[in-house]
Write a protein that binds this DNA or RNA. Structure first.
Length: 400
DNA sequence: TGTGGTTTCC
């Protein structure tokens, strides 16, 4: 169009940017070039153009660029969709505190919440395990009569199961009259995550009896449950069933299968599966293999997995630590030191691990990392969970 | 002729 000398108009860019967002995984440059044209041609202040730019950068995972576009949009043009797009972009990436901040800002500038805002905010709460804030948003959605909306209900299942409230999640699940595949997936994943593996697998089987078709997420849910339950043969059967259903396995499915085999000690089979994959394994797959090597003390295979991981995720501290610890455990100190040196040369920092325990209105962090055994840090709850500001009169959880 | 939504390994 540009080469033909035809000038794009305000409708051209949303189409082009939607396509660029869909192609973002393969080629991000196109979308950035289109962003350049938007500025050149002068359609930046069209709210649709701005919103599709937000979608493009959100899909790409470049939330800094998305925030910059958002900030440069004029206040009176920024609309409900602009806020929702950025909230969802943050919660997917996952910058969940930022998502909740924006959710609060939205109302303070006078833009109403709709189901999309609520769904994005609930998802952010789930990822943060922010039960209190999640309940407040649940309450808000009840007042707005959104709580029976399917997507909202599904997000609530996700929220409560991620926060350990399985029974509450199940209650919401049972009350949905028009359950879709995401409702079932959220509940199966919830059971799996909380260690109720039999319940997860039973629900997966029940789903078919209820006449629903599995999708690729259903299989991730059931495969990870089988993996944790040590049900190797059953997991293999589900994997074959997925292939028979013409669902193409993704990296995540292979990661689940490698985890299933590796955890059970079938290291050769796990490594063979990685080799036979129809595409290059990503860090999830190699990470699952490395984890299995750690459990079963297979240093040779761990070296291979780590080699790939150091290339794929050079800044990820966990992989260096894991391999170094494996060497140390068997007294191969020189090699352990080499891995630590490699880590240092790449300026990869290890943050000490800690456990968070909420006591009253305080959040206590127990540092359990090396050299800090037993030390304890006390912080104000709202220093850490920015969503605390939601506890105002109009957003309180009913006591009934 | 245009924009936003739930569920995904370790």
């Amino acid at each position: 169009m540009l080469r033909a000398g035809v000038r794009p108009d305000d409708r051209t860019f949303p189409f082009a940017l939607t396509a660029a967002a869909a192609a973002a995984g393969d080629d991000a440059r196109k979308g950035r070039e289109i962003h350049g044209s938007v500025i050149k041609v002068g359609f930046f202040y069209d709210v649709f153009v701005g919103n599709t730019l937000l979608t493009f950068y959100g899909t790409l995972g470049d939330l800094l660029a998305a925030k910059q576009v958002f900030d440069e949009m004029l206040h009176r043009e920024r609309d409900q969709v602009s806020y929702n797009t950025l909230i969802v972009g943050y919660s997917e990436n996952p910058l969940c505190s930022e998502a909740l901040d924006l959710f609060l800002d939205m109302r303070s500038v006078g833009i109403e919440y709709d189901v999309v805002s609520i769904v994005g905010a609930l998802s952010a709460c789930g990822n943060l395990s922010a039960l209190k804030q999640g309940k407040e948003i649940h309450c808000l959605s009840m007042r707005k009569l959104f709580d029976t909306h399917l997507f909202v209900a599904n997000s609530l299942i996700d929220l409560y199961t991620k926060c350990g409230r399985i029974a509450l999640g199940k209650k919401i699940f049972d009350r949905i009259s028009n359950k879709d595949v995401a409702s079932w997936n959220a509940m199966i994943l919830g059971y799996g995550m909380q260690g109720e593996l039999e319940a997860a697998i039973n629900l997966f089987d029940l789903m078919k009896d209820e006449g629903l078709e599995y999708d690729h997420v259903s299989y991730i849910a059931v495969l990870s449950a089988c993996s944790h339950a040590g049900l190797v043969e059953r997991g293999k059967r589900y994997f074959d069933q997925m292939l028979a259903q013409n669902i193409r396995p993704t990296q995540m499915h292979y990661a689940c299968m490698v985890d299933l085999l590796g955890r059970a000690g079938l290291m050769t089979e796990a490594a063979e599966l990685v080799r036979s994959m129809p595409f290059e394994a990503d860090s999830n797959v190699w990470g699952a293999l490395l984890g299995a090597c750690r459990i079963h003390g297979n240093i040779e295979l761990a070296q291979l997995a780590a080699e790939h991981l150091f290339k794929l995720k050079p800044g990820h501290c966990g992989y260096y630590i894991l391999l170094s610890n494996m060497y140390a455990e068997v007294g191969r100190w020189n090699e352990a030191d080499k891995v630590r040196a490699l880590m240092k040369s790449r300026k990869v920092k290890k943050n000490p691990g800690c456990s968070w325990v909420q006591i009253g209105n305080k959040l206590r962090a127990f540092l359990v990392g090396e050299g800090s055994q037993g030390s304890e840090l006390e912080l104000c709850y709202d220093e850490l969970v920015k969503g605390e500001r939601m506890s105002s009169a109009y957003l309180s959880w009913p006591q009934t």
